[in-house]
């Protein structure tokens, strides 16, 4: 049985259920790299050029950790998901960068996903990927179908049940955040956290921000809790036609939650993120118009837990005080 390694970083959070189903239906064993830890971070940081953003460095760390455990690593080249919107350069260049920076890496399976080209192009690429595992076209077809269904189910499960990626992947039901400790002293706050899935759900990267907020008695809303269609519509409302494939995660979610009316919006981004540096301004501007508190947290490999907690506490205190004055 062929072992396929999947790094637990970047696109993993959005597409893992799809990939897993696909490879398992083709009788391959899926190996996922461990949760991000210090060793992974360090091995990524030492390999990549200093200017590279943190999630990509972490990605290399995950890929390195898979070297001995699998026969091939799956790193798709996701160029465009259609509608003239493209992915970030670094995601497009991932397989090539991995080959360059990790020469000892096993075979990299890098099917090109570019919906700007003909549909036939995508089908052929997926078929070629499947051929690595089986020579039976019918089996590949079936695997693709099931993978697609599981991806749809995954996405709708998150928006229907209001759970995060991690909870949906692990199949864990959300523990209702009945804040027992400070429900009487302060009203429960609803805060939207917007950002790329690979930043929001990597607990090592963001110092457990989401669970930290939850333990502070905050109801956390993430982009995945809204249907894709609503996010797209919100993004269109704010900036028009999307330029990047993941614009809905940042602008769409920001605008959607600002419109719905939350107590505050936290944007979680990483230092040096090109698309975020541009998109954020629109969300920030909109938050200013609507007078919603907005916190921008920029993470990098030097960000410390203490600094993060201080900023979060100050932000929450500020919101609570505002609410008291208003009431």
């Amino acid at each position: 049985m062929i072992k396929v390694g999947i790094p637990r970083a970047l696109l993993y959070y959005q597409y893992f259920p799809m990939w897993k189903t696909f490879f398992e239906r083709l009788d391959a064993e899926v190996v996922v790299s461990p949760l991000t830890n210090k060793a992974i971070l360090n091995s990524g940081v030492t390999r990549a050029v200093a200017d590279t953003c943190l999630p990509v460095k972490i990605f290399f760390g995950h890929a390195v950790s898979l070297i001995d455990n699998c026969d091939c690593i799956f790193i798709p080249t996701v160029i465009s998901l259609g509608r003239k919107a493209f992915n970030c350069s670094k995601i497009i260049g991932l397989p090539n960068m991995s080959r360059a920076l990790i020469p000892e890496c096993p075979v990299i399976l890098a099917p090109e996903v570019n919906l700007e080209k003909w549909r036939y192009h995508l089908y052929r690429n997926i078929y070629e990927l499947g051929r690595y595992f089986t020579s039976n076209p019918a089996k590949i077809r079936k695997a693709v179908k099931e993978a697609w269904e599981s991806s749809l189910a995954y996405r709708s499960r998150m928006s229907d049940e209001g759970i995060t990626c991690i909870e949906a992947i692990d199949g864990v039901c959300r523990v209702e955040q009945q804040s027992g400790f400070n429900s009487d002293s302060s009203p429960m706050l609803t805060i939207a956290v917007v950002g790329h899935p690979y930043v929001l759900y990597d607990d090592y990267l963001n110092h457990r921000l989401i669970s930290r907020l939850q333990s502070m008695g905050v109801k956390v809303l993430v982009p995945e809790m809204v249907t894709e269609r609503a996010l797209d519509a919100a993004a269109r409302r704010l900036v028009g036609t999307p330029h990047w494939s993941f614009e809905a995660d940042i602008i769409g979610a920001g605008e959607y939650y600002l419109e719905v009316g939350v107590d505050g919006v936290i944007n979680l981004s990483v230092f040096g993120c090109g698309p975020d540096s541009m998109m954020l301004n629109f969300v920030k501007h909109r938050a200013k118009e609507l007078e919603t508190p907005f916190l921008h947290l920029s993470l990098d490999e030097h960000a410390t837990e203490g600094g993060l907690i201080t900023r979060l506490e100050a932000f929450l205190d500020m919101i609570t005080r505002r609410m008291k004055i208003c009431v």
């Binding site: 990549a48 050029v49 200017d51 590279t52 350069s89 670094k90 497009i92 360059a100 920076l101 540096s277």
Partner: peptide, 28 residues
Amino acid sequence: APFTCMPEIVAQNIMSSTKEDIPVLAVT
């Protein structure tokens, strides 16, 4: 390359390990 330029970072990452023997001064 401008600081945080995405395409050029990809290029820098790849250029650092090509086998062509030519010195490259990367200026950000």
